[in-house]
């Protein structure tokens, strides 16, 4: 039988202590329990990538992780990608400049994926970016502008202070 168990975690720098249902996925926990609805559910079976968040610095599909498994973890969601002054970060600005989003539904998962990639590999080339992005489905853009935006944002990640979140 499912039941609630207490977990603690930090999300975008804020600490939470919360009871999570044992059958809750991390994405449902973030959306329903923590009310962080920026992370989206596109398929719930680990294919589309819309629910991607960073768990301890690594991009992860949050529909394929149980909420209790995030106990003690440090999580970054799309809500945590902005610059410290509350404005859009370099990656987000590049997305707007290059029209790398249309309906915006897959965008949070693509931003978190790209943020993880560029944090680890700020020199990723277009092939590497496409390779990594192949785990995220976008039905609107055809990906061309997304790749352009991520390429442009690389500069900011080479100088981490500008890259957006430092939390």
């Amino acid at each position: 039988m499912s039941r609630k168990i207490d977990i603690t975690l930090t999300v975008n720098g804020a600490a939470y202590a919360h009871a999570a249902d044992t059958r809750s996925t991390l994405v449902d926990f973030l959306r329903d329990d923590l009310k962080l609805t920026g992370t989206h559910i596109g398929c719930e079976h680990g294919v589309c990538g819309a629910c991607t968040v960073l768990v301890d610095g690594e991009a992860v599909r949050s529909c394929l992780m149980l909420a209790p498994q995030a106990d003690g973890a440090s999580i970054v969601t799309v809500e945590g990608l902005g610059a410290a002054n509350g404005e859009l970060g370099a990656l987000q600005r590049a997305f707007r400049k290059h029209h790398a989003l249309q309906c915006g539904f897959c965008t949070p998962g693509i931003l978190t994926t790209a943020h993880a990639l560029l944090t680890q590999e700020p020199d990723a080339d277009a092939d590497r970016i496409r390779d990594v992005l192949s785990g995220n489905i976008c039905r609107c853009t055809g990906y061309v502008t997304i790749v352009q935006a991520i390429l442009e944002a690389r500069d900011a990640y080479r100088r981490p202070a500008d890259a957006g979140t430092s939390r």
């Binding site: 959306r31 962080l36 609805t37 920026g38 992370t39 989206h40 559910i41 969601t77 799309v78 809500e79 990608l81 902005g82 859009l88 987000q92 997305f95 707007r96 029209h99 989003l101 309906c103 915006g104 539904f105 965008t107 949070p108 931003l111």
Partner: peptide, 16 residues
């Protein structure tokens, strides 16, 4: 696009 800021910051509001 004027609508992009809310989508990029996770502030879009979809039906779910």
């Amino acid at each position: 696009r004027l609508e992009d800021e809310r989508f990029l910051s996770g502030r879009g509001q979809y039906v779910a």
